[in-house]
Amino acid sequence: MTITRDSLMTLEAYSKYRKENKPQIIAHRKLRSVHLGEHITLQFESETSIRYQIQEMLRIEKIFEEEGIEQEIEAYAPLVPDGGNWKATMMIEYPDVNERKRELARLIGVEDRLFVEVEGHDRVYAIADEDLDRENDEKTSAVHFVRFEFTPAMRAAIQAGASVRLGCDHTHYPAHMDIPADTLASLAGDLAPA
């Protein structure tokens, strides 16, 4: 389902919905959050998580005018997977500010070294930051938006229960792990039948 202005709730309706459904939305986001090593987290987005994000922004900013609503949709709707891919917000987290500054300088290009490996298939590297460049010569950003595109054969394998590894082969952040079964089941639901 596409997120449109007409498909969003009014601020009043959302306020009521939020009170009743916040635990389920938090659980959905937690299920789709994968920690890769100690310092990288990928929040795999869905139509549900992005719809929630837009509604939250409208609520926080008290946006109820058509133009403002359209701007929020334009900002976030591209993060909804389209059936052939997974999309995620990648966060690089270091609690200590000095360590964070040092590590973000060492991790330039890390977003391009993220991969998903479907059992029996080649690695699929992330396509990062299509909206704007989030790094410079001195450091990478702490937040990136990434997309993993799958072939029909990969989609079919995922939907048939193949194991899937998430990894990073950046020189300064080598890490990989199997995506947990419950998370993988949720992510498989984002893919169109192959």
Rank of each mutant, 00 (worst) to 15 (best):
N136Y: 03
A160E: 10
L132Q: 14
L11M: 02
I40R: 02
R155I: 09
A175C: 07
Y52F: 15
R51F: 06
H172E: 15
T10K: 01
I69S: 03
K62C: 07
I63V: 14
I25S: 07
Y76C: 11
P81G: 02
P174I: 04
E99V: 05
P180I: 04
T183D: 12
E61F: 07
A75L: 15
K62R: 14
F145N: 04
E61Y: 08
K87W: 03
S49Q: 09
T183K: 09
R29Q: 11
I158L: 02
A157K: 07
S46N: 06
N98L: 07
P180F: 05
I92L: 12
A88S: 13
R123P: 06
S33M: 12
I54A: 10
E61L: 14
S46D: 12
M1T: 00
H144Q: 03
E20S: 13
K87C: 06
I54Y: 10
K16D: 13
E72H: 02
A188I: 11
H170R: 08
I40M: 14
V80K: 01
R5Q: 06
I26A: 10
S141Y: 04
Q159R: 15
H28N: 12
Q43C: 01
T10A: 01
E47V: 12
E93I: 06
R32C: 13
R106S: 12
F44P: 08
K30Y: 09
E66Y: 00
D169Q: 02
E130T: 04
H121C: 01
C168G: 09
K139R: 15
S7C: 01
N136R: 01
G189L: 08
Q53D: 07
T151S: 15
I63D: 04
V118T: 14
H172C: 09
S15A: 15
R155Q: 08
H172T: 02
G189T: 10
Y52R: 15
L107H: 05
Q43D: 14
E65C: 00
F145P: 01
T183Q: 13
I3G: 05
V34I: 14
A175L: 08
A188V: 14
G161H: 12
R155H: 02
F64N: 09
A175K: 06
A185Q: 15
G120V: 05
F44V: 01
R18E: 10
I60M: 09
D133I: 07
I63P: 09
S33C: 11
T48Y: 03
T151R: 03
R32L: 13
M9S: 04
A194P: 14
L191G: 13
R106P: 05
A75N: 13
V118D: 11
W86P: 08
I40Q: 08
P180S: 04
T171S: 11
E70F: 00
K139P: 10
E65M: 00
Q24H: 10
G83E: 12
V116E: 03
H170G: 07
D137C: 03
